[in-house]
Write a protein that binds this DNA or RNA. Sequence first.
DNA 1: TAGATTGTTAATCGATTAACAATC
DNA 2: TAGATTGTTAATCGATTAACAATC
Lengths: 211, 211
Amino acid sequence: MVKNGISTAVIKRLPRYYRYLGELMEAGTERISSNELSKLMNVTASQIRQDLNNFGGFGQQGYGYNVEFLYNEIGRLLGVDRRHNIIVVGSGHLGQAIANYANFERRGFIVKGMFDRNPDVIGKEIRGIKVMSMEEIEEFIRINKIEIAALTLPKQQAAEIAERLVGFGIRGFWNFAHIDLELPKGIVVENVHLSESLMRLSYNLTTINDK
Amino acid sequence: MVKNGISTAVIKRLPRYYRYLGELMEAGTERISSNELSKLMNVTASQIRQDLNNFGGFGQQGYGYNVEFLYNEIGRLLGVDRRHNIIVVGSGHLGQAIANYANFERRGFIVKGMFDRNPDVIGKEIRGIKVMSMEEIEEFIRINKIEIAALTLPKQQAAEIAERLVGFGIRGFWNFAHIDLELPKGIVVENVHLSESLMRLSYNLTTINDK
DNA sequence: TAGATTGTTAATCGATTAACAATC
DNA sequence: TAGATTGTTAATCGATTAACAATC
């Protein structure tokens, strides 16, 4: 893999740039300077220019950045110009919420199927997406060219199932289970640990309180 | 406020320490050295000692750290020894998923009420929690001593409603809307931007691909 | 051409790691 | 007391900010 030296700090900021540029585009703004954007986003203009120049010179001296061009370039970097087929593994409330969130589709993230081990939910349909049994998962991944698995299941099951899914060809995990997945090199894991997020909020509330 | 110089990098790691210590405790481990913990968690022992010493000397030379003691101390720092009353504002699928996630309660985060502007969901009950109309929110916050609002509503509404909620006394926001809330100093915002998380996953899949 | 603003190098700041004296 | 391991200072590394020459 290239893993071309781009720091995670930069990558973390990319989606936010993308969001602001999208909004600027909707507002009809044609061009923007790093200075204007910096005021909008509450970061330094220097950081914006440094960040963008990790990927190439997207701007033009004396002019700034073309909003639509930059939006599309960042979109390409983020892979939202491609289609990503997703399965949701664990069809409880959180899994269903994700399947229901149609907005992801606009960015090319398509939930193709859902899975659960609980017979009570198997057969159910969420926004036209069927919940299937875990036995059907291997074939489904192959036939539907699934790339990403959203893991919305109890942490007790997450590790074992993730390993099996790697065997079935899944290369990206959107992990909502409260566990650090240990998977082979080359497998990408993006964690969403809601309980940790809530604790950080609580920490900040607590310390601000101790004014 | 004190905002006592503890860097956000350290605070981000606290919940993870807490999780590992909880697991060690469940496994019956009584004490652990920074070196053992570092292997478990895949960080340096140096970092663990530095992090913990931001808050005081929790260990003992020659012995290491008492697992239960450290667990409780970090828990206290994170505010999970206290009760936090929460309302969920926006009772769509994501809001319902959060209300349904009983695990938060074990950490003292209690969802007391849910709100929505859509008459179709008002009156519904999620795990015994009633969905109320937006008109009832001010009084509810006061009577139930609500501290945190989870914002699980469309971004178009989030900014305006957050501002109103600040007026009603909410000091912490768990923000799931894709927007950067601009709120007065002293108000704590913890963002969960799922679409940004998904894009980072996609970015990493894309670049690893370009091997 | 003059003005604006980038791309990029250099300086600063902060966070991580290493080292070791203190101490249980 | 000897061994282990912390707490903490010092060294290194990386990320952010500042400055400015290049260039549109």
